[in-house]
Structures are given as C-alpha cells and as structure tokens.
Amino acid sequence: MKVTLAMKPMTKGFIPIEAESIVPKNFLSGTDLSVWRGNRELRLDEAFSVSVEGSADRAEDVEVVLSGDTCRLKRVGEYMDAGRITVLGGIGMHCGNFMSGGTIEVHGNADGWLGREMAGGTIVCRGDVADYCASGYRGGRKGMKGGTVEVFGRAGDFLAESLAGGTVVVHGDAGDMAGAEIHSGTLVVHGNCSRPAANMKGGSCYVYGTARGMIPTFRKVGTVQHEGRTLIQFTGDLANRGKGNLFVKDYEYLD
C-alpha cells in the first residue's frame, strides 16, 4: 500500500503542524487521522491531499510518501515500528523519534532532533540535519539506543548526544560537541567537527577529518588502520573516568 500525502499550502503563517499520527501502521485502518496546527486539531485531509494506492495487512507493506512544503511538519514517524516513510522534501523537527523499526528516508534537510531516542530501524537523510540528530531527551541519561542514522550532508551541533547504542554516520562535517556523553554505540563523521566525544564514557567515535578544539583530557594511544585510513586513537574522556575510544585523522587543541 502506498499512501501519498501532499501538503496543502499553509493558511496560517508559519505555525508548525504536529503529525505523530503519520506512521505506516496507522494507515492500515484508513486515513481518518488528525494532525494539530498549534492548538487546533485538523483532519488529515485538511492539511494534506491524501491518496491511497493498493492495500496492506501489515505495517511492513505500507509506504507513506510526503510531498510539498513539509519543513514545518513535526513528529512524523514517531514511535514507528515498521514500514516506510519517504519525504521528498525537507522535514520538520522530531522526525522518527522513539522509532523502533522500518525506514525513513528524507530527501531534503531534516530539522532538529531527527531520530531522537531511536531504538531501532533506519533513517537516511540525503540533505543536512540540524542540531541534536540522534540525541536523547533533556535530563535523560540515554540518547539513541539502537538502529542506524545515515546523513549524507552536514550535521548541526550535539550530534548523537548521549548515544547509547546503534550507529550514526555523517558523510559531511558535524558541528560542535559531536558525540558528547557517548556511553556506547558508534558515531562516524567523515568530515571535520568540533570538540568530538566530550565527556564520553564508552563507545566509539570516528572523525575522518580534523577534530577542532580537541578536548584536552583524552590520552593518546597510538595510530591505527581503519578502513584504509590511518587514524590516531585516543581513550577517554579521562575527566569523566571514561573508557571510550576516539579516532581522529587529525586534531587541534585550543592551546
């Protein structure tokens, strides 16, 4: 089954729409769903032109395609456990939060908190992601716990904060504090980033470019070969009695 949701032009300025109902399994029982614009409840078809092709008995066989200006559409794919969501443009905040299975593919850019507290499944973003991609919630100990997030563009600050499992790969540069407070899991940044793995407790963080503002409390172990690259290995963060591994191609201290 393929559900196509074409965003109608916004009538009321820039107020975001929260659409946690847009999850493949919900469409198994029809399209009588609602979304919220600010404090007003809208029927799904008030916000989208809805079309459905084919049918399905299980969420795995449902694909939801979102088109139009979806940059302010929040919470799409929240608690998604199976199926597929394809976003042809950009997507608003909190896409794929708490996701445990299935696939989300975003062709444009993703706003903040993409894949927050994700437990499983796959998210692919062809564009850039804003801050807090694959992170946790305020005050919580654990961020993303499982699954995969792959970003082909750049990432904002606090990428994979408190990562507790799963894999996060960013092909471009990442911002400040990438992989802060990592407990376990793997973060790979193909480009440069600033202050990676600050306060890390465990897990692994790879920076194939330059780590700027390198945290001074990592102990250099030596060099290692990793997928055809020569990387410098550190362990830390000593300030946090951490035993994580940080691999960088290059680094600069703020000395």
């Binding site: 202050r195 600050a198 306060n199 945290i215 409390t217 300030a239 201290y253």
Partner: peptide, 9 residues
C-alpha cells in the same frame, strides 16, 4: 569547557 575538563582530570 576545555579548562574545566582539565581541572577535573
């Protein structure tokens, strides 16, 4: 941040 980390260590 770097100074604070260093002090902690």
């Amino acid at each position: 941040y770097a100074v604070l980390s260093a002090l902690r260590a």
